[in-house]
Amino acid sequence: MREPAWRIFAAEYNDSQHVLKATEEKTPSYVLTPLGAKVNRMFIVGVLTDIEDIGTEGIRRRARISDPTGIHVVYAETFNPEAAGVLSDMEIPSYAAIVGKARIYEPEEGMLYLSTRAEVARKSTIDTRNQWIIEACRGTLLRINAMKDAMNMSNPTPRQLRELGYPSFIAEGVTEALKMYSDIDIDTYEELLREALSFITSEEKEMKKDYAAEEGTLLQIIGELEGEEGALWDAVAEEAVKRGMAREVMEEVIILLMEKGMVYEPQLGKLKLV
């Protein structure tokens, strides 16, 4: 069956120290992450921060794609000129989506360099990026929970984990990771999840909403009420609510206007146009 494209945070992927090598022909190799993801194919959406030509022959490019937890290093190589071309045409920074294979380079025992070899590259959008973060968080949380459950078992087997409702590919990977990694720091990954999620929740406020209309209304209200001393914050709020604006929105937009330098507080609790 076709390998699923894991949505995996750079931090977890880059932390990996073990590779499950192909035992037979036509079976893939996997990167085994500390939380038990068995990654062969992956799907990455993030911010393209850098792209460079490497090597002398043919098209070979190395891109860096940032997610909320770290950097994915992505190679686009000669045999896939399309992906390389798409990456080169993108602006820096911009949102990029990559489907690729785990690229494993192990020059000597214990020295593991992990990156991704691009199969498909596309320009992406903030919506797709947010969706990706959500999917990556969901998957990470599932593995964290499975890992915690497995750690509570005296001799965890995939079957026991499956009986708790985990999908078999999670149950197998988690059991294997538990054998191969001596200490798995779950707290770190939980913290990382919180950070990734706050990326979405905070960004939602700043970027998702366009407050142009509200800004105009508030500038107008302040202009009407400011007089010499400045308009009272509460009076502005009252008027804004009267005109159909939610109190929280009003507060947020005032802060935005102050940040933009269009409104200032001559004294605490009063607002004036600049």
């Binding site: 959500i134 968080c137 999620l197 979405i200």
Partner: peptide, 17 residues
Amino acid sequence: PLQLDYKKEADEILSQL
């Protein structure tokens, strides 16, 4: 096309966490 309410989804994952 799938439209997700990211903030809601994020809050949901946070509460599970």
